[in-house]
Amino acid sequence: MINRRDFMKLSAVGGGAVFLSGLSQITQAAAAYDDFYFVQLSDSHWGYQGPANPEANNTLRKAVETVNGLELQPDFIMFTGDLTHTTDDPKERRKRLTEFRDIVSDLKVKNVHFIPGEHDASLDNGAAFKEFFGETHYSFDHKGVHFVTLDNVSDPGASIGEAQLAWLAADLAKQARDARIVVFTHRPLFDLVPKWDWATRDGAKVVQILMEYPNVTVFYGHIHQENHHMTGHIAHHSAKSLVFPLPAPGSQDKRTPLPWNPAAPFSGLGFREVEAEDKPFQLKITEFPVTRA
């Protein structure tokens, strides 16, 4: 029988690039651990209508189909924000959240986590999001890894705020210093491109807290493309979107969406698998397109 690790080697061939994240410093493993993988989906912007994606009404559904078609299903799925495209109308916002929830309810995997993006939450401080998906920041444990989600979007100014920072510090204080910690958030926690608003206003305070722990990796969305960055020993990995790609960080004056390519529809879009492997512990990232041949 094929094991998980062998399967990932095979799936990587069809999936795309594989990126090994840090955490290799671990020498003392946490108590119970088992190989597993999760899927990160991000920035579906359900409700968007525009030339950057004339197939916006189908893209999320195609991604759901592709995830459901994975031979081995993930232990859980994480959506890292901008589930919906923003609207001023509270009723329309809830309609979009309803439609989004209905579509992703077709996922085979039922262990699905959500955090908001600024398009979901900044205009009502997360009120509608909470009605549908609960708290905007929380933590959970899975097979020896501690997962933390952070909300840097319910404040329209992209601040996490002192209360959430205190919660984060208290949450992590319960962990062993060498715990395996994975953080999910929407915006980058570091100043990637401040002039494009690709930052978190008090992200440096989060990083300062995280720096106390040697085995931390951050996964985020917001920038609609794969990007890998280190702050000290902490690796930050952004995900592709499910609506339209954005230009490379700082590569042009404005962060306007890249044009839709009719010859290669859905190009630049996708999702990722992240396999948590033991011995040595590492996070193996495999990128997938929205649709697979």
Binding site: T86, D88, P156, G157, K195, W196, D197, R201
Partner: peptide, 17 residues
């Protein structure tokens, strides 16, 4: 020197600069 609105203000926020 580029400037921008860094308080998310709606669907055209990304253009406010």
């Amino acid at each position: 020197y580029d400037f921008l609105c860094d308080n998310f203000c709606g669907v055209g926020h990304e253009e406010m600069s």
